[in-house]
Design a protein around this nucleic acid. Structure first.
Lengths: 230, 230
DNA sequence: AGAGAAAATATTGTGCACAATTTTTCGAAA
DNA sequence: TTTCGAAAAATTGTGCACAATATTTTCTCT
Protein backbone atom coordinates (compact mmCIF):
# COMPACT_ATOMS: atom_id res chain seq x y z
CA UNK A 1 0.00 0.00 0.00
CA UNK A 2 2.85 2.33 0.78
CA UNK A 3 3.71 4.49 -2.16
CA UNK A 4 7.09 5.61 -0.84
CA UNK A 5 10.37 3.80 -0.89
CA UNK A 6 12.28 5.12 2.07
CA UNK A 7 12.10 7.67 4.81
CA UNK A 8 9.97 7.12 7.86
CA UNK A 9 8.97 10.74 8.36
CA UNK A 10 8.32 11.02 4.65
CA UNK A 11 5.77 8.25 4.79
CA UNK A 12 4.11 9.83 7.79
CA UNK A 13 3.68 13.09 5.93
CA UNK A 14 2.29 11.24 2.93
CA UNK A 15 -0.17 9.28 5.01
CA UNK A 16 -1.28 12.23 7.10
CA UNK A 17 -2.14 14.29 4.06
CA UNK A 18 -4.10 11.44 2.57
CA UNK A 19 -5.91 10.81 5.84
CA UNK A 20 -6.75 14.49 6.21
CA UNK A 21 -8.28 14.41 2.76
CA UNK A 22 -10.23 11.23 3.51
CA UNK A 23 -11.67 12.88 6.62
CA UNK A 24 -12.34 16.09 4.77
CA UNK A 25 -10.12 18.23 6.94
CA UNK A 26 -8.25 19.13 3.78
CA UNK A 27 -10.66 20.29 1.12
CA UNK A 28 -10.04 21.23 -2.52
CA UNK A 29 -8.30 24.50 -3.18
CA UNK A 30 -6.28 24.65 0.02
CA UNK A 31 -2.67 25.53 -0.58
CA UNK A 32 0.00 23.21 0.74
CA UNK A 33 2.97 25.43 1.42
CA UNK A 34 6.27 23.60 1.48
CA UNK A 35 7.71 25.41 4.47
CA UNK A 36 4.57 24.90 6.53
CA UNK A 37 4.53 21.16 5.90
CA UNK A 38 8.27 20.96 6.48
CA UNK A 39 8.18 22.60 9.90
CA UNK A 40 4.90 20.94 10.84
CA UNK A 41 6.29 17.47 10.27
CA UNK A 42 9.91 18.23 11.08
CA UNK A 43 11.24 17.17 7.73
CA UNK A 44 13.42 18.97 5.23
CA UNK A 45 11.76 20.86 2.44
CA UNK A 46 13.25 18.47 -0.09
CA UNK A 47 11.25 15.66 1.47
CA UNK A 48 8.10 17.71 1.30
CA UNK A 49 8.71 18.36 -2.36
CA UNK A 50 9.11 14.67 -3.01
CA UNK A 51 5.85 13.86 -1.26
CA UNK A 52 4.05 16.63 -3.10
CA UNK A 53 5.32 15.31 -6.40
CA UNK A 54 3.96 11.88 -5.57
CA UNK A 55 0.62 13.30 -4.50
CA UNK A 56 0.51 15.31 -7.71
CA UNK A 57 1.12 12.16 -9.73
CA UNK A 58 -1.86 10.66 -7.91
CA UNK A 59 -3.94 13.74 -8.78
CA UNK A 60 -4.61 14.41 -5.13
CA UNK A 61 -2.84 17.75 -5.34
CA UNK A 62 -2.32 19.98 -8.33
CA UNK A 63 1.04 21.64 -8.77
CA UNK A 64 1.24 24.95 -10.55
CA UNK A 65 4.67 26.11 -11.70
CA UNK A 66 6.22 28.65 -9.33
CA UNK A 67 2.94 28.88 -7.45
CA UNK A 68 2.86 25.79 -5.34
CA UNK A 69 0.68 22.78 -4.62
CA UNK A 70 -3.05 22.90 -3.96
CA UNK A 71 -5.49 20.23 -2.97
CA UNK A 72 -6.99 19.13 -6.24
CA UNK A 73 -10.44 20.40 -7.21
CA UNK A 74 -12.22 18.00 -9.56
CA UNK A 75 -14.38 19.44 -12.33
CA UNK A 76 -17.80 18.02 -13.08
CA UNK A 77 -16.57 16.15 -16.12
CA UNK A 78 -13.57 14.77 -14.26
CA UNK A 79 -15.85 13.61 -11.46
CA UNK A 80 -18.06 11.77 -13.92
CA UNK A 81 -15.02 10.14 -15.50
CA UNK A 82 -13.77 8.95 -12.16
CA UNK A 83 -17.13 7.56 -11.09
CA UNK A 84 -17.49 5.80 -14.45
CA UNK A 85 -14.07 4.28 -13.96
CA UNK A 86 -15.05 3.13 -10.49
CA UNK A 87 -18.21 1.47 -11.80
CA UNK A 88 -16.13 -0.43 -14.31
CA UNK A 89 -13.28 -1.42 -12.03
CA UNK A 90 -15.30 -2.18 -8.92
CA UNK A 91 -17.89 -4.07 -10.91
CA UNK A 92 -15.12 -6.36 -12.08
CA UNK A 93 -13.47 -6.53 -8.70
CA UNK A 94 -16.58 -7.49 -6.80
CA UNK A 95 -17.16 -10.34 -9.24
CA UNK A 96 -13.61 -11.51 -8.71
CA UNK A 97 -14.02 -11.07 -4.97
CA UNK A 98 -17.03 -13.39 -5.03
CA UNK A 99 -14.75 -16.02 -6.54
CA UNK A 100 -11.65 -15.58 -4.42
CA UNK A 101 -12.50 -13.90 -1.11
CA UNK A 102 -11.16 -15.85 1.84
CA UNK A 103 -13.04 -16.12 5.17
CA UNK A 104 -10.40 -13.84 6.67
CA UNK A 105 -11.09 -11.22 4.04
CA UNK A 106 -14.84 -11.47 4.59
CA UNK A 107 -14.23 -11.03 8.29
CA UNK A 108 -12.13 -7.97 7.59
CA UNK A 109 -14.93 -6.49 5.52
CA UNK A 110 -17.48 -7.15 8.27
CA UNK A 111 -15.17 -5.50 10.77
CA UNK A 112 -15.36 -2.34 8.71
CA UNK A 113 -19.15 -2.62 8.59
CA UNK A 114 -19.17 -2.64 12.41
CA UNK A 115 -16.96 0.42 12.54
CA UNK A 116 -19.20 2.14 10.05
CA UNK A 117 -22.27 1.42 12.15
CA UNK A 118 -20.52 2.77 15.20
CA UNK A 119 -19.44 5.95 13.45
CA UNK A 120 -22.93 6.46 12.04
CA UNK A 121 -24.57 6.04 15.44
CA UNK A 122 -22.10 8.46 16.97
CA UNK A 123 -22.78 10.86 14.15
CA UNK A 124 -19.11 11.12 13.32
CA UNK A 125 -19.18 12.17 9.72
CA UNK A 126 -15.45 12.39 9.06
CA UNK A 127 -14.57 8.80 10.04
CA UNK A 128 -17.60 7.56 8.12
CA UNK A 129 -16.25 9.00 4.91
CA UNK A 130 -12.89 7.41 5.46
CA UNK A 131 -14.35 4.05 6.44
CA UNK A 132 -16.54 3.95 3.38
CA UNK A 133 -13.48 4.37 1.21
CA UNK A 134 -11.61 1.75 3.17
CA UNK A 135 -14.45 -0.68 2.63
CA UNK A 136 -14.23 -0.34 -1.12
CA UNK A 137 -10.45 -0.72 -1.00
CA UNK A 138 -10.63 -3.80 1.19
CA UNK A 139 -13.19 -5.30 -1.14
CA UNK A 140 -10.86 -4.53 -4.03
CA UNK A 141 -8.06 -6.43 -2.33
CA UNK A 142 -10.06 -9.62 -2.67
CA UNK A 143 -9.78 -9.44 -6.45
CA UNK A 144 -6.06 -10.21 -6.14
CA UNK A 145 -4.92 -7.77 -8.77
CA UNK A 146 -2.51 -5.22 -7.29
CA UNK A 147 -2.27 -3.26 -10.53
CA UNK A 148 -6.01 -2.69 -10.59
CA UNK A 149 -6.11 -2.13 -6.86
CA UNK A 150 -3.60 0.65 -7.04
CA UNK A 151 -5.69 2.34 -9.68
CA UNK A 152 -8.76 1.96 -7.50
CA UNK A 153 -6.83 3.45 -4.61
CA UNK A 154 -6.26 6.61 -6.62
CA UNK A 155 -9.90 6.69 -7.71
CA UNK A 156 -11.08 6.43 -4.11
CA UNK A 157 -8.78 9.24 -3.02
CA UNK A 158 -10.14 11.46 -5.73
CA UNK A 159 -13.68 10.45 -4.78
CA UNK A 160 -13.15 12.03 -1.36
CA UNK A 161 -12.47 15.29 -3.12
CA UNK A 162 -15.46 14.85 -5.40
CA UNK A 163 -17.73 14.41 -2.39
CA UNK A 164 -16.18 17.40 -0.67
CA UNK A 165 -17.09 19.59 -3.62
CA UNK A 166 -20.29 18.17 -5.03
CA UNK A 167 -22.13 16.32 -2.26
CA UNK A 168 -25.44 18.03 -1.68
CA UNK A 169 -25.50 19.74 1.68
CA UNK A 170 -29.04 18.66 2.52
CA UNK A 171 -28.55 14.91 2.27
CA UNK A 172 -27.34 13.12 5.33
CA UNK A 173 -28.67 9.66 4.67
CA UNK A 174 -25.91 7.16 4.25
CA UNK A 175 -26.93 4.00 2.43
CA UNK A 176 -24.42 1.85 4.21
CA UNK A 177 -26.72 -1.13 4.01
CA UNK A 178 -25.47 -1.43 0.45
CA UNK A 179 -22.09 -2.38 1.85
CA UNK A 180 -23.56 -5.09 4.05
CA UNK A 181 -25.64 -6.50 1.23
CA UNK A 182 -22.61 -6.63 -1.03
CA UNK A 183 -20.56 -8.50 1.56
CA UNK A 184 -23.35 -11.01 2.00
CA UNK A 185 -23.48 -11.67 -1.73
CA UNK A 186 -19.72 -11.88 -2.04
CA UNK A 187 -19.61 -14.36 0.79
CA UNK A 188 -22.36 -16.38 -0.89
CA UNK A 189 -20.29 -16.39 -4.08
CA UNK A 190 -22.94 -14.61 -6.12
CA UNK A 191 -20.70 -12.29 -8.11
CA UNK A 192 -23.30 -11.29 -10.67
CA UNK A 193 -25.79 -10.11 -8.06
CA UNK A 194 -23.05 -8.47 -6.02
CA UNK A 195 -22.04 -6.51 -9.10
CA UNK A 196 -25.63 -5.41 -9.58
CA UNK A 197 -25.71 -4.11 -6.03
CA UNK A 198 -22.45 -2.33 -6.58
CA UNK A 199 -24.10 -0.54 -9.48
CA UNK A 200 -27.02 0.39 -7.23
CA UNK A 201 -24.58 1.63 -4.66
CA UNK A 202 -22.99 3.99 -7.16
CA UNK A 203 -26.44 5.10 -8.27
CA UNK A 204 -27.11 6.07 -4.66
CA UNK A 205 -23.82 7.89 -4.34
CA UNK A 206 -24.37 9.85 -7.52
CA UNK A 207 -27.92 10.66 -6.49
CA UNK A 208 -26.47 12.48 -3.49
CA UNK A 209 -24.23 14.50 -5.77
CA UNK A 210 -25.00 17.81 -7.39
CA UNK A 211 -22.78 17.48 -10.40
CA UNK A 212 -23.13 20.91 -11.93
CA UNK A 213 -20.31 23.35 -12.35
CA UNK A 214 -20.85 26.15 -9.91
CA UNK A 215 -20.19 29.19 -12.02
CA UNK A 216 -18.96 32.36 -10.40
CA UNK A 217 -22.23 33.99 -11.42
CA UNK A 218 -24.29 31.24 -9.81
CA UNK A 219 -22.68 31.33 -6.40
CA UNK A 220 -24.22 34.15 -4.38
CA UNK A 221 -21.91 37.01 -3.62
CA UNK A 222 -21.96 39.15 -0.55
CA UNK A 223 -24.31 41.52 -2.27
CA UNK A 224 -26.94 38.86 -2.89
CA UNK A 225 -26.79 37.84 0.73
CA UNK A 226 -26.81 41.25 2.36
CA UNK A 227 -28.93 43.43 0.09
CA UNK A 228 -32.00 41.33 0.84
CA UNK A 229 -33.29 39.73 -2.35
CA UNK A 230 -37.06 39.97 -2.55
CA UNK B 1 -0.04 13.17 -22.21
CA UNK B 2 2.93 14.80 -20.63
CA UNK B 3 3.48 13.62 -17.10
CA UNK B 4 5.84 16.39 -16.10
CA UNK B 5 5.07 19.89 -15.06
CA UNK B 6 8.13 21.91 -15.99
CA UNK B 7 11.60 21.55 -17.38
CA UNK B 8 12.19 21.05 -21.05
CA UNK B 9 15.23 18.81 -20.71
CA UNK B 10 13.45 16.91 -17.98
CA UNK B 11 10.60 16.04 -20.31
CA UNK B 12 13.02 14.97 -22.98
CA UNK B 13 14.72 12.59 -20.59
CA UNK B 14 11.36 11.19 -19.52
CA UNK B 15 10.17 10.69 -23.08
CA UNK B 16 13.42 9.20 -24.30
CA UNK B 17 13.44 6.57 -21.59
CA UNK B 18 9.85 5.66 -22.33
CA UNK B 19 10.52 5.50 -26.05
CA UNK B 20 13.59 3.34 -25.53
CA UNK B 21 11.45 0.95 -23.55
CA UNK B 22 8.69 0.94 -26.17
CA UNK B 23 11.27 0.07 -28.82
CA UNK B 24 12.90 -2.50 -26.60
CA UNK B 25 16.28 -0.83 -26.53
CA UNK B 26 15.91 -0.72 -22.77
CA UNK B 27 15.00 -4.12 -21.42
CA UNK B 28 14.13 -5.24 -17.90
CA UNK B 29 16.96 -5.43 -15.42
CA UNK B 30 19.15 -2.72 -16.93
CA UNK B 31 20.43 -0.31 -14.35
CA UNK B 32 19.76 3.37 -14.87
CA UNK B 33 22.66 5.11 -13.18
CA UNK B 34 21.91 8.68 -12.20
CA UNK B 35 25.26 10.09 -13.27
CA UNK B 36 25.12 8.38 -16.65
CA UNK B 37 21.69 9.77 -17.43
CA UNK B 38 22.66 13.17 -16.11
CA UNK B 39 25.72 13.52 -18.33
CA UNK B 40 24.03 11.82 -21.27
CA UNK B 41 21.17 14.29 -21.29
CA UNK B 42 23.06 17.25 -19.89
CA UNK B 43 20.82 17.73 -16.90
CA UNK B 44 21.59 17.91 -13.22
CA UNK B 45 21.38 14.77 -11.18
CA UNK B 46 18.48 16.20 -9.21
CA UNK B 47 16.45 16.29 -12.42
CA UNK B 48 17.34 12.70 -13.16
CA UNK B 49 16.21 11.72 -9.70
CA UNK B 50 12.88 13.43 -10.22
CA UNK B 51 12.31 11.65 -13.52
CA UNK B 52 13.29 8.32 -12.01
CA UNK B 53 10.84 8.86 -9.18
CA UNK B 54 8.06 9.48 -11.69
CA UNK B 55 9.02 6.43 -13.71
CA UNK B 56 9.07 4.39 -10.52
CA UNK B 57 5.57 5.59 -9.67
CA UNK B 58 4.53 4.35 -13.10
CA UNK B 59 6.20 1.00 -12.40
CA UNK B 60 8.42 1.36 -15.42
CA UNK B 61 11.50 1.33 -13.24
CA UNK B 62 12.01 -0.21 -9.85
CA UNK B 63 13.97 1.73 -7.27
CA UNK B 64 15.89 -0.15 -4.63
CA UNK B 65 17.09 1.80 -1.60
CA UNK B 66 20.74 2.81 -1.86
CA UNK B 67 21.10 0.61 -4.93
CA UNK B 68 19.55 2.59 -7.70
CA UNK B 69 16.89 2.34 -10.38
CA UNK B 70 16.46 -0.60 -12.72
CA UNK B 71 14.15 -1.15 -15.63
CA UNK B 72 11.27 -3.04 -14.10
CA UNK B 73 11.05 -6.77 -14.60
CA UNK B 74 7.46 -8.03 -14.41
CA UNK B 75 6.82 -11.36 -12.77
CA UNK B 76 4.46 -13.89 -14.32
CA UNK B 77 1.68 -13.07 -11.89
CA UNK B 78 2.14 -9.35 -12.39
CA UNK B 79 2.01 -9.82 -16.13
CA UNK B 80 -1.25 -11.71 -15.86
CA UNK B 81 -2.70 -9.00 -13.64
CA UNK B 82 -1.77 -6.32 -16.12
CA UNK B 83 -3.18 -8.18 -19.08
CA UNK B 84 -6.39 -8.86 -17.16
CA UNK B 85 -6.64 -5.18 -16.38
CA UNK B 86 -6.14 -4.34 -20.04
CA UNK B 87 -8.89 -6.72 -21.08
CA UNK B 88 -11.25 -5.02 -18.68
CA UNK B 89 -10.31 -1.43 -19.46
CA UNK B 90 -9.88 -1.78 -23.20
CA UNK B 91 -13.05 -3.80 -23.51
CA UNK B 92 -14.90 -0.90 -21.98
CA UNK B 93 -13.00 1.69 -23.93
CA UNK B 94 -13.59 0.12 -27.31
CA UNK B 95 -17.33 0.04 -26.59
CA UNK B 96 -17.22 3.70 -25.66
CA UNK B 97 -15.12 4.42 -28.74
CA UNK B 98 -17.80 2.86 -30.92
CA UNK B 99 -20.21 5.40 -29.49
CA UNK B 100 -18.09 8.49 -29.52
CA UNK B 101 -15.26 8.17 -32.03
CA UNK B 102 -15.14 11.11 -34.43
CA UNK B 103 -14.17 10.76 -38.10
CA UNK B 104 -10.91 12.51 -37.27
CA UNK B 105 -10.15 9.95 -34.59
CA UNK B 106 -10.96 7.09 -36.95
CA UNK B 107 -8.64 8.65 -39.50
CA UNK B 108 -5.92 8.88 -36.86
CA UNK B 109 -6.33 5.20 -36.08
CA UNK B 110 -6.12 4.26 -39.75
CA UNK B 111 -2.98 6.33 -40.09
CA UNK B 112 -1.37 4.15 -37.45
CA UNK B 113 -2.53 1.05 -39.31
CA UNK B 114 -0.70 2.31 -42.40
CA UNK B 115 2.47 2.90 -40.41
CA UNK B 116 2.16 -0.54 -38.90
CA UNK B 117 1.87 -2.12 -42.35
CA UNK B 118 4.92 -0.20 -43.48
CA UNK B 119 6.98 -1.22 -40.47
CA UNK B 120 5.91 -4.85 -40.88
CA UNK B 121 6.84 -4.93 -44.56
CA UNK B 122 10.20 -3.38 -43.79
CA UNK B 123 10.67 -5.90 -41.03
CA UNK B 124 11.33 -3.20 -38.48
CA UNK B 125 10.44 -4.92 -35.27
CA UNK B 126 11.16 -2.08 -32.84
CA UNK B 127 8.84 0.50 -34.39
CA UNK B 128 6.15 -2.14 -34.74
CA UNK B 129 6.11 -2.70 -31.01
CA UNK B 130 5.82 0.99 -30.35
CA UNK B 131 3.13 1.51 -32.99
CA UNK B 132 1.03 -1.30 -31.63
CA UNK B 133 1.02 0.36 -28.24
CA UNK B 134 0.22 3.71 -29.79
CA UNK B 135 -2.74 2.18 -31.56
CA UNK B 136 -4.25 0.97 -28.31
CA UNK B 137 -3.65 4.34 -26.69
CA UNK B 138 -5.21 6.24 -29.56
CA UNK B 139 -8.19 3.95 -29.47
CA UNK B 140 -8.44 4.60 -25.74
CA UNK B 141 -8.55 8.33 -26.37
CA UNK B 142 -11.87 7.90 -28.15
CA UNK B 143 -13.51 6.80 -24.89
CA UNK B 144 -13.14 10.35 -23.60
CA UNK B 145 -12.11 9.39 -20.11
CA UNK B 146 -8.67 10.80 -19.26
CA UNK B 147 -8.58 9.10 -15.86
CA UNK B 148 -8.99 5.70 -17.47
CA UNK B 149 -6.71 6.62 -20.33
CA UNK B 150 -3.86 7.49 -18.02
CA UNK B 151 -4.23 4.12 -16.35
CA UNK B 152 -4.19 2.44 -19.74
CA UNK B 153 -1.08 4.38 -20.61
CA UNK B 154 0.73 2.84 -17.66
CA UNK B 155 -0.57 -0.61 -18.55
CA UNK B 156 0.71 -0.27 -22.10
CA UNK B 157 4.14 0.81 -20.90
CA UNK B 158 4.34 -2.19 -18.66
CA UNK B 159 3.15 -4.40 -21.49
CA UNK B 160 6.29 -3.50 -23.46
CA UNK B 161 8.32 -4.91 -20.60
CA UNK B 162 6.13 -8.00 -20.40
CA UNK B 163 6.70 -8.69 -24.08
CA UNK B 164 10.43 -8.10 -23.69
CA UNK B 165 10.61 -10.80 -21.05
CA UNK B 166 7.99 -13.34 -21.98
CA UNK B 167 7.37 -13.17 -25.72
CA UNK B 168 8.32 -16.48 -27.23
CA UNK B 169 11.38 -16.14 -29.40
CA UNK B 170 10.07 -18.40 -32.14
CA UNK B 171 6.92 -16.49 -32.99
CA UNK B 172 7.21 -13.67 -35.44
CA UNK B 173 3.66 -13.53 -36.69
CA UNK B 174 1.99 -10.28 -35.84
CA UNK B 175 -1.80 -10.40 -35.95
CA UNK B 176 -2.13 -6.76 -36.87
CA UNK B 177 -5.26 -7.49 -38.83
CA UNK B 178 -6.98 -7.49 -35.47
CA UNK B 179 -6.32 -3.79 -35.25
CA UNK B 180 -7.85 -3.14 -38.64
CA UNK B 181 -10.91 -5.25 -37.88
CA UNK B 182 -11.42 -3.37 -34.62
CA UNK B 183 -11.25 0.00 -36.33
CA UNK B 184 -13.79 -1.14 -38.89
CA UNK B 185 -16.21 -2.21 -36.17
CA UNK B 186 -15.68 0.95 -34.15
CA UNK B 187 -16.34 3.02 -37.22
CA UNK B 188 -19.50 1.01 -37.87
CA UNK B 189 -20.60 1.71 -34.31
CA UNK B 190 -20.71 -1.97 -33.35
CA UNK B 191 -19.21 -1.73 -29.88
CA UNK B 192 -20.22 -5.21 -28.76
CA UNK B 193 -18.54 -6.93 -31.68
CA UNK B 194 -15.52 -4.63 -31.43
CA UNK B 195 -15.15 -5.65 -27.80
CA UNK B 196 -15.31 -9.31 -28.80
CA UNK B 197 -12.49 -8.73 -31.26
CA UNK B 198 -10.51 -6.93 -28.63
CA UNK B 199 -10.80 -10.04 -26.50
CA UNK B 200 -9.59 -12.15 -29.43
CA UNK B 201 -6.73 -9.75 -29.88
CA UNK B 202 -5.60 -10.27 -26.31
CA UNK B 203 -6.01 -14.01 -26.72
CA UNK B 204 -3.58 -13.79 -29.63
CA UNK B 205 -1.14 -11.70 -27.68
CA UNK B 206 -1.18 -14.05 -24.72
CA UNK B 207 -0.80 -17.03 -27.04
CA UNK B 208 2.53 -15.59 -28.12
CA UNK B 209 3.64 -15.33 -24.52
CA UNK B 210 5.45 -17.93 -22.49
CA UNK B 211 4.22 -16.94 -19.07
CA UNK B 212 6.30 -19.21 -16.89
CA UNK B 213 8.80 -18.02 -14.35
CA UNK B 214 12.28 -18.81 -15.59
CA UNK B 215 13.99 -20.18 -12.53
CA UNK B 216 17.71 -19.74 -12.07
CA UNK B 217 18.07 -23.51 -12.15
CA UNK B 218 16.31 -23.74 -15.49
CA UNK B 219 18.45 -21.27 -17.33
CA UNK B 220 21.64 -22.98 -18.50
CA UNK B 221 24.86 -21.73 -16.97
CA UNK B 222 28.20 -21.50 -18.70
CA UNK B 223 29.10 -24.92 -17.46
CA UNK B 224 26.09 -26.54 -19.08
CA UNK B 225 26.95 -24.89 -22.35
CA UNK B 226 30.71 -25.47 -22.42
CA UNK B 227 31.23 -28.80 -20.69
CA UNK B 228 29.31 -30.61 -23.44
CA UNK B 229 26.33 -32.32 -21.89
CA UNK B 230 25.90 -35.82 -23.24
C1' DA C 1 45.28 -20.63 -6.41
C1' DG C 2 41.29 -19.52 -3.43
C1' DA C 3 38.95 -17.24 0.39
C1' DG C 4 38.33 -13.51 3.13
C1' DA C 5 39.19 -8.95 4.85
C1' DA C 6 40.29 -4.27 4.09
C1' DA C 7 40.98 -0.37 1.32
C1' DA C 8 39.52 2.19 -2.72
C1' DT C 9 36.09 3.48 -5.78
C1' DA C 10 31.57 4.39 -7.33
C1' DT C 11 26.81 5.47 -6.47
C1' DT C 12 22.90 7.03 -4.03
C1' DG C 13 20.85 10.05 -0.23
C1' DT C 14 20.28 14.63 1.96
C1' DG C 15 20.51 19.27 3.52
C1' DC C 16 21.57 23.87 2.50
C1' DA C 17 22.47 28.10 0.15
C1' DC C 18 21.16 30.90 -3.41
C1' DA C 19 18.47 32.13 -7.72
C1' DA C 20 13.97 32.91 -9.86
C1' DT C 21 9.38 33.93 -9.32
C1' DT C 22 5.24 35.23 -7.14
C1' DT C 23 2.63 37.56 -3.63
C1' DT C 24 2.05 41.12 -0.41
C1' DT C 25 2.87 45.58 1.41
C1' DC C 26 3.46 50.32 1.18
C1' DG C 27 3.28 54.81 -0.70
C1' DA C 28 2.43 58.36 -4.13
C1' DA C 29 -0.47 60.44 -7.55
C1' DA C 30 -5.00 61.18 -9.69
C1' DT D 1 -10.71 57.01 -1.60
C1' DT D 2 -8.99 54.43 -5.41
C1' DT D 3 -5.39 52.92 -8.50
C1' DC D 4 -1.11 52.10 -10.04
C1' DG D 5 3.60 50.86 -9.35
C1' DA D 6 7.69 49.88 -6.89
C1' DA D 7 9.91 47.90 -2.99
C1' DA D 8 9.76 44.17 0.38
C1' DA D 9 8.60 39.71 1.80
C1' DA D 10 7.44 35.13 1.04
C1' DT D 11 7.62 31.04 -1.70
C1' DT D 12 9.20 27.90 -5.12
C1' DG D 13 13.14 26.17 -8.16
C1' DT D 14 17.92 24.45 -8.64
C1' DG D 15 22.61 23.09 -8.21
C1' DC D 16 26.22 21.64 -5.32
C1' DA D 17 28.83 19.76 -1.58
C1' DC D 18 29.09 16.27 1.54
C1' DA D 19 27.30 12.05 4.09
C1' DA D 20 25.81 7.28 3.83
C1' DT D 21 25.78 3.16 1.51
C1' DA D 22 27.04 -0.19 -1.86
C1' DT D 23 30.33 -2.20 -5.11
C1' DT D 24 34.73 -3.25 -6.80
C1' DT D 25 39.48 -3.88 -6.31
C1' DT D 26 43.51 -5.09 -3.89
C1' DC D 27 46.05 -7.40 -0.61
C1' DT D 28 47.08 -10.98 2.71
C1' DC D 29 46.96 -15.41 4.66
C1' DT D 30 46.18 -20.27 4.32
Amino acid sequence: MSQLSGGEAEQELYREIRRAIAERRLVPGIKLTEDSLASLFNVSRARVRKVLLILAKEHIVKQEPNRGAFVWRPSVIESRNILDARRLVEGYMVREAAKFASPQQIAGLRAILVEEDKARLDGEVAPMMRLSGEFHLKLGECAQNPALWEFLNGLVSRSYLILAVYQRRDVRTCPQDDHRKIVDLVEAGDGAEAARWMEHHFDHIEAELDLVEESVAAKPGLKDILIAPR
